[in-house]
Design a protein around this nucleic acid. Structure first.
Length: 592
RNA sequence: GCCUCCAUAGCUCAGCUGGAUAGAGCAACGGUUUUCUAAACCGUGGGUCACAGGUUCGAAUCCUGUUGGGGGUACCA
């Protein structure tokens, strides 16, 4: 039983005995005591006045006295207006540190037995990844790590969008304008090479449209009649028919893209246990259409198209199969959802996809529920806001994107420059330097993207560099390195014996209290699917440690017991920083 | 039109299921190092929590409406 549970239990007992009431514990509200008051745990007494029929102050006094008499850890209390502040003994916090937070297993939850799938990244194979994809990748990876830390078995999957008209556009442009260019011949990373032709396609296509419009065609006609788009459509048909030449080209260009993606993924430090490819899954879902028709959930229109009526749910009528019998986006997704469940039988399945698809997923989940899929209630769309530039939306076609590889390189270069300015790499080998710059540059980028609540849209100004000071990844990394430095100088290994030093300073106590909150943060982050909670916590923790570091000497202490205690506190803090940052996919250095 | 998300300091963001005087970072200004790493710490200034109602002992938080912005809206994915 945790201290919180103990207090809640006795609170409920107190109300029963003092006020002869049978109120359940969920009526009580425990919170952290604000900094300016004495104590660590606060009970808000306003809600209880309804039962006590006394003033908030008197109620606080009554409950405070009862709790103090019945809970050993509470040594005193004070009542300010409707707030009962409980002062927990320093000895208790000390023991918590020694027994719990210093334990290497602190923050590792027991197995829940639950299986969770996280699908993320899901790139198109016609262009390189950009900043928006980075947000997606980091979110997906981090949420997966958070769920795993909560004891779940997590399967990270990537559903690659490797077919369709957009892919044909790149292929066609390469065929027409590429002169046999390859990644080897051009020195370009494969995904960038393919992306180049995607942009070329769009440029040439626009040119053709303008020519047609000059001849008097309307915008719409020009879009349809341009030779290039018609060729691309023919190519898609040839692909679907299994045309050998087209398939070969498709395979070749995709292999270039995959090689490029692999590099970017590896730099970002994200990984997957299972890849699905739309070229394999795009025909799935038709049996689900039949199932829906036979269950009377779908209906057929005279032209043969299949629909579902969701107007009673406040949505629209939605097409689920074209009149010609071919599938649309949602048809495939219905099929793929079933396939994923058949493959893994997971309780929960999370889709990390931008908020532009909110409606799509709402409909998808609703349909699966209506079809009576038992697993439909475990589906969750982790919707996140777009990353916008000051000039507006990023558009790959028009080349107005912040390229993922460029940005990563830039961040690493900035990290290098800053580190050299500070002159902190004396005695580092070249390899160690390179690792450190990578760690810091990526740390800054990842933290920058993950500290913001997923659903909020993010504005990125390429002209303003990402910070390395203040509420940033490098700040947290620096704090970790700083602790490691102290521990190394003391040759501290964590097994040294130490006793309660008699009392704790305010900052020592605050630090231990904060360490105690890590488990709660971990659970909330999983519940809310929000790495931002972890990021903000680890920042606050680092800030508090730096305060402690400045206020209290460690190595200079002559009192060996106190010194060991402070080293142990430092070590516990470093361990939590390390674990929390790992949940964000950020590595922390021992020196920087 | 309809649906949906967002709006907190000059800028970027926290603010947990409603609780005490709304907090950080950046930017500005001032201070701290004969060194346990100054990528740090301490301090000053900066707010009509978009606006208007409502619920409540209590609202940045919940409800309704208004304004502004993003996204979606049936055979693209």
């Amino acid at each position: 039983m945790t201290l919180e549970q103990k207090i809640l239990f006795h609170l409920s007992e107190a109300v029963k005995t003092i006020y002869q009431s049978t109120t359940e514990t969920n009526q009580f509200n425990l919170q952290e005591t604000r900094k300016e008051f004495e104590g660590q745990i606060t009970v808000v007494t306003f809600p209880i006045t309804r039962i006590s029929k006394k003033s908030p102050e008197q109620t606080g006094e009554d409950l405070g006295n009862y709790l103090k008499a019945n809970v050993d850890e509470i040594i005193s209390f004070n009542v300010i207006k409707g707030f009962l502040n409980l002062v927990i003994s320093d000895e208790y916090w000390f023991q918590q540190l020694k027994n719990e937070y210093l334990n290497p297993n602190y923050g590792i939850m027991p197995t829940s037995g639950k299986k969770v799938m996280v699908e993320y990244s899901s790139p198109n194979t016609n262009k390189p990844l950009h900043l928006g994809h980075i947000r997606n990748n980091l979110l997906g990876y981090s949420v997966a790590e958070i769920l795993a830390a909560n004891g779940n078995e997590v399967i990270k999957t990537n559903l690659v969008n490797d077919r369709g008209i957009h892919i044909c556009k790149s292929m066609l442009a390469w065929q027409k304008f590429g002169n046999g260019e390859t990644p080897e011949s051009s020195g370009l990373k494969g995904d960038h090479l393919v992306g180049k032709y995607y942009v070329i396609f769009d440029k040439e296509y626009k040119k053709q449209q303008d020519e047609l419009k000059a001849k008097g065609q309307s915008e719409e006609e020009a879009k349809k009649n341009a030779a290039l788009i018609q060729e691309a459509q023919q190519m898609l048909q040839a692909w679907e028919a299994g045309d050998e030449a087209v398939i070969t080209l498709w395979k070749t260009m995709n292999s270039w893209v995959y090689a490029g993606f692999e590099q970017t993924y590896s730099k970002l430090g994200v990984d997957f246990q299972k890849f699905y490819y739309e070229s394999d899954t795009y025909l799935l879902g038709k049996d689900i259409i039949d199932e829906g028709l036979s269950k009377g959930i779908f209906f057929k229109k005279p032209d043969g198209s299949v629909w579902i009526d969701l107007t009673t749910e406040g949505l629209d009528e939605k097409l689920v199969l074209r009149a010609d019998g071919t599938s649309v986006y949602i048809t495939q997704d219905l099929g793929t959802a079933q396939l994923k469940y058949n493959d893994f039988g997971m309780e929960e399945s999370i889709y990390v996809v931008g908020n532009e698809q909110d409606y799509h997923f709402k409909v998808l989940f609703l349909i699966l529920e209506k079809l009576g899929k038992s697993w439909a209630k475990g589906l969750y769309h982790l919707s996140y806001g777009m990353v916008d530039l000051p000039t507006g939306k990023m558009k790959s076609r028009e080349g107005t994107v912040v390229d993922a590889d460029d940005l990563i390189d830039e961040m690493v270069a900035t990290a290098k420059q800053r580190t050299e300015e500070l002159g902190k790499v004396d005695g580092f080998s070249e390899e160690e330097k390179a690792n450190l710059y990578q760690m810091i540059g990526l740390g800054a980028l990842k933290y920058f993207l993950l500290k913001v609540e997923p659903k909020k849209r993010l504005l990125f100004d390429p002209n303003e560099s990402i910070d390395f000071q203040g509420n940033t990844g490098p700040f947290v990394q620096y704090t970790h390195a700083r602790i490691c430095s102290v521990l190394a100088k003391a040759a501290f290994n964590g097994n040294e014996q130490f006793n309660f030093p008699g009392q704790l300073s305010d900052t020592e106590r605050d630090l231990i209290v904060m360490l105690s909150q890590y488990l709660q943060i971990l659970q909330n982050a999983a519940k809310e699917h929000s790495p931002a909670l972890v990021a903000n916590y680890v920042y606050e923790l680092s800030k508090l440690y730096n305060k402690f570091y400045h206020e209290e000497p460690i190595l200079k202490l002559e009192d060996e017991n106190l010194k060991t205690f402070r080293l142990a506190l430092s070590k516990s803090t470093a361990a939590v920083i390390n674990k929390a940052m790992a949940l964000l996919g950020i590595l922390v250095p021992e020196r920087m």
